[in-house]
């Protein structure tokens, strides 16, 4: 064989083998992390983990799970409403105007802004004036994180709705708000749901923005949003740092990590299923 051909073929094979290796390298972490989570988390799981509150020794994660659910749900509901409205303006009214382009750009930047900055921001504008940490502050911080996600997916999905549908509805005499509500939203529903689920998955694992907003507590907190709110990520953080000398707390943290990761991955998979359905 021509030596030039041979050399080109060899180079090609080496590169392709390297990219195969890279893929293995990329995927293996997911397995390693899942294996660790299961091997350390499953032995620590028990009914008490879900029903008992956190204590200095023993106890469970019940109050933390409840607190996380409350804060994530409230933030998702609030963030979804604001996000959908703002996304609607960008897609239906803003168009290519200068203002819309600026908002789009800022939103894209906020989408990946460090979450600890959001925590500091809410601390400065909510916690300091109120004088104490609170569940509301935690909800506000999580909302600031989810809003850009919902805005982005709402706008993208509304832009996929063909203009001829809007024009057909307008020709029948429908007003613009009715067109958006009845025609555009029904076309973009599945896509927006995907965005909301992905955003919800993202905020349910966030720790940094809760450090100085919701803080944490060992008590049960049933919708008393004005005071500190227990939450799962903060319990994990505290058990792995200041309480890490107590083996029981560390294994409890792994049980919590397993629950948290399972919840987040299930939300992610739900989002994927919903987006696959919308593409059909």
């Amino acid at each position: 064989m021509n030596p030039v051909y041979r050399r080109r073929r060899t180079i090609n094979r080496i590169i392709m083998a390297a990219s195969l290796l890279a893929s293995a390298f990329g995927v293996i972490w997911l397995f390693l992390i899942l294996v660790t989570l299961v091997s350390k988390g499953v032995p620590a799981l028990s009914l008490d983990v879900f029903t008992e509150r956190t204590r200095m020794s023993g106890g469970g994660l019940g109050n933390a799970i409840l607190g996380s659910l409350i804060m994530t749900a409230l933030a998702t509901i609030g963030g979804t409403m604001i996000g959908i409205l703002a996304g609607t303006w960008l897609a239906e009214y803003g168009g290519r105007s200068k203002l819309a382009n600026t908002i789009r750009f800022i939103n894209d930047v906020l989408l990946s802004a460090p979450s600890i900055i959001i925590g500091l921001y809410i601390y400065a504008v909510v916690v300091l004036p109120m004088g104490h940490f609170s569940g509301w502050a935690g909800v506000a911080a999580l909302m600031v994180i989810i809003i850009p996600v919902v805005i982005r997916s709402t706008e993208d999905m509304l832009l996929l709705v063909p203009n001829s549908l809007r024009e057909a509805a307008a020709a029948l005499g429908a007003h613009r708000w009715l067109i958006v509500l009845k025609v555009c939203y029904s076309g973009a529903k599945a896509g927006i749901t995907t965005g909301v689920l992905l955003g919800c998955a993202r905020i349910s694992g966030e720790t940094a923005p809760l450090l100085f907003t919701a803080l944490n507590t060992n008590q049960w907190n049933f919708f008393n949003m004005g005071s500190e709110m227990p939450n799962l990520p903060m319990v994990l953080y505290q058990n792995m740092t200041i309480n890490s000398f107590i083996p029981a707390q560390v294994s409890l943290a792994w049980a919590g990590a397993l629950i948290l990761t399972a919840a987040v991955l299930i939300l992610n998979i739900l989002a994927r299923v919903s987006s696959a359905r919308s593409q059909k």
Binding site: L37, A208, P233, A253, W254, A257, T261, N268
Partner: peptide, 19 residues
């Protein structure tokens, strides 16, 4: 494989820290 890599992006950062 695409999904697996994307799921890796979904794992909360505190889990990476603990791991």
């Amino acid at each position: 494989i695409g999904t697996m890599v994307e799921l890796l992006a979904g794992v909360p950062s505190i889990i990476y820290g603990m791991w």
